[in-house]
């Protein structure tokens, strides 16, 4: 207990907690829609684009978040359009975009600064890179994401559950799909510095995948995902502090443990229900 109190004495850890909790929450809520629409990998694709954008920002000595947010939002749009128009299947489109982005990022880095500590921290995440400005921007954008999600909750449900019906009844499905893509893009960029490009997509996928094991209503899944995201993040951070592991990796491992636990519970319930 003492060590937890001691942990918060470090301002960078307090910052990481604030940003991490908000970003995890946003990612988990958006993730419910993405996972159910079978767009799970979009987070992974966007994180690679975000990595490339951060490398470019670093090479140009520009503020990372201000460069990468517009680039990643554009990429999200592009991915959505490509698959909507039937130009490419979504898994293929994401694979192409993420590999290309990674290649661009690595090339830019090797031509300019070389593999520095900063670049590798974008790969695997670091809680040390967060500045005060990053925190303010993250808090602001996370609040926007949360507000839009809550306000348009029912529209997001119907667009996720049955796009054809939604379109026919006059819900602007194109608008809501774009909104989900943009919000996801923003969330990915915000979370990437801390979690790392390779691990951030797990914040999108794990909470809803875990919740679906036990909850059978949309609201249940959304609420459970939100709670899981926050709880797993906090546990992961504490473990990370005590064992000096990178925060991203330990958060993902806690998510994995939660998934296994829910999976076991699901089967336990099934077995006892059958008896």
């Amino acid at each position: 207990m003492d060590s937890i109190v001691e942990m918060f004495a470090y301002p960078f850890i307090a910052r990481a907690f604030i940003v991490g909790i908000l970003v995890s929450l946003c990612a988990a809520l958006l993730g419910v829609s993405l996972v159910l629409k079978q767009y799970s990998m979009i987070g992974d694709g966007l994180s690679h684009v975000s990595y490339a954008a951060l490398c470019i920002a670093l090479a140009c000595n520009a503020a990372p978040l201000f460069v990468s947010i517009p680039i990643v939002v554009c990429a999200a749009f592009l991915l959505l359009r490509m698959t909507e128009k039937g130009f490419m299947k979504s898994d293929a489109a994401i694979a192409v975009v993420s590999a290309s982005a990674l290649a661009i990022g690595v090339s830019v880095t090797s031509l300019t600064t070389g593999m520095t500590m900063d670049v590798s921290s974008y790969m695997f995440g670091s809680i040390l890179v967060m500045t005060r400005e990053d925190v303010i921007l993250s808090v602001f954008l996370s609040v926007v994401v949360l507000f839009l999600f809550v306000f348009f909750y029912h529209q997001i449900f119907t667009v996720t559950f049955d796009e054809n019906f939604a379109k026919a009844t006059g819900v602007k499905t194109g608008f809501f799909n774009s909104m989900i893509a943009i919000l996801t893009a923003v969330t990915i960029v915000l979370g990437m510095q801390m979690m790392g490009a390779l691990l951030i997509s797990s914040l999108v996928i794990f909470p809803s995948l875990t919740s679906i094991r036990l909850f059978r209503s949309f609201r249940g899944v959304v609420l459970c995902s939100g709670c899981l995201a926050v709880v797993c993040f906090c546990i992961g951070m504490v473990i990370s502090y005590q064992s000096a592991m990178p925060a991203g990796a330990s958060v993902v491992l806690v998510h994995l443990a939660a998934f296994c636990l829910f999976f076991l519970l699901q089967h336990l319930i099934k077995i006892t229900g059958n008896q």
């Binding site: 449900f157 009844t169 006059g170 059978r216």
Partner: peptide, 15 residues
Amino acid sequence: FPASVMEVVLSGFLN
């Protein structure tokens, strides 16, 4: 899809 019957039916009102 994890959705309750009521959630599905109510989404008809979004028009």
